[in-house]
């Protein structure tokens, strides 16, 4: 799925790295605990979260993720935008809540564990 498709499905705004909306992603994960993301996530390229601090971007960066979706109308801090730009990570923001956002993406084919590239 293209990141631009995720944006449409979630009726999301782009907070940074709009130039990377054409990138394809194949799997996603959702969590507010970065500890768990670091410990349990494997190759998922998208992180959905309601947590807002710079370590969300750092975590995504270390795990080679390409897109972060902030759910429940959360907005990124200036530091988050700066860090995301350094790594080319797209930040989407949506009013949709975590459970619904995950469900919408999942039912449109964005699975939890990568099946194929």
């Amino acid at each position: 799925m293209k990141i631009s498709t995720m944006k449409e499905l979630l009726d999301a705004e782009v907070a940074c790295c709009e130039e990377n909306l054409d990138r394809h992603v194949y799997s996603a994960c959702g969590s507010d605990m970065m500890s768990d993301v670091l410990a349990f996530v494997k190759d998922q390229a998208v992180l959905l979260t309601g947590l807002v601090n710079s370590q969300v971007i750092r975590t995504a960066e270390m795990m080679d993720m390409v897109c972060i979706v902030l759910v429940r109308s959360k907005l990124p801090t200036p530091e988050m935008i700066e860090l995301a730009q350094e790594s080319g990570i797209v930040i989407l923001t949506t009013k949709t809540r975590m459970y619904d956002a995950c469900g919408i993406l999942y039912s449109n084919g964005l699975v939890g564990n990568k099946v194929k590239e």
Partner: peptide, 12 residues
């Protein structure tokens, strides 16, 4: 509340 402290870091 900052997203850490699950006790997963060292084993990871």
């Amino acid at each position: 509340s900052l997203g850490f402290g699950a006790g997963m870091g060292l084993p990871n």
